[in-house]
Design a protein around this nucleic acid. Structure first.
Length: 168
DNA sequence: GCCAACGTTGGC
DNA sequence: GCCAACGTTGGC
């Protein structure tokens, strides 16, 4: 099965790409997702080896700052039943988990942020989920074509596509 | 800080 | 099952 691509949103004040890079082995769980549509993707669709566009929201500028890679398939998010966590949900229990997460590994920062404004301005990305009006989903599917186009915007001058890890 | 868009809750 | 009220997201 060919790897797929995703866009993961995070507020950098909560968890940034730098935070992922600084995690042990560059690996961290993508916990705290509390939306059913995003949960279903994490539980059923996001798989080891998939590429992740790391998107910073609610900052200036908003946009894609780099890439990560999925290193563990979906599994129950234990922060849901931790009352001390940032997103406790007493309706989720170890016996009957409601929320799921995957583990991701840092790959690299782009040389610069590819801003939402740039994504919106790129004709090749006009159908990309993140540029659609009212699109709040925090885990979004990205096509191979969109993935390549975003990397092209970030690093096009450096022939990055196909050249390095996840540069496919 | 504003507010549009969307998701969830809960009364009925 | 409807839908109003409310809460959250997230760009601007």
């Amino acid at each position: 099965m060919a790897p797929r691509y995703w866009l993961f949103k995070s507020e950098p004040s909560a968890f940034s790409l730098d935070d992922l890079k600084a995690s042990p082995g560059g690996v961290a769980p993508w916990d705290g997702v509390r939306n059913y549509q995003a949960r279903n993707l994490l539980r059923d669709e996001v798989k080891v080896g998939d590429g992740v566009l790391f998107y910073h929201s609610s900052t200036d500028p908003v946009g894609v700052v780099g890439i990560a890679e999925v290193v563990r398939d979906g599994y129950p998010d234990p922060t849901a039943w931790d009352p001390e966590s940032d997103h406790p949900d007493p309706k989720s229990t170890p016996d009957n988990p409601r929320w799921y997460m995957v583990d991701v590994r840092y790959v690299r920062h782009f040389a610069r942020t590819v801003t939402l404004a740039e994504l919106k301005a790129a004709p090749a990305l006009k159908d990309m989920k993140v540029v659609q009006r009212g699109m709040r989903l925090s885990i979004q599917p990205v096509t191979a074509r969109e993935w390549a186009a975003v990397l092209g915007l970030a690093e096009g001058g450096r022939r990055a596509i196909g050249e390095s890890a996840l540069g496919r």
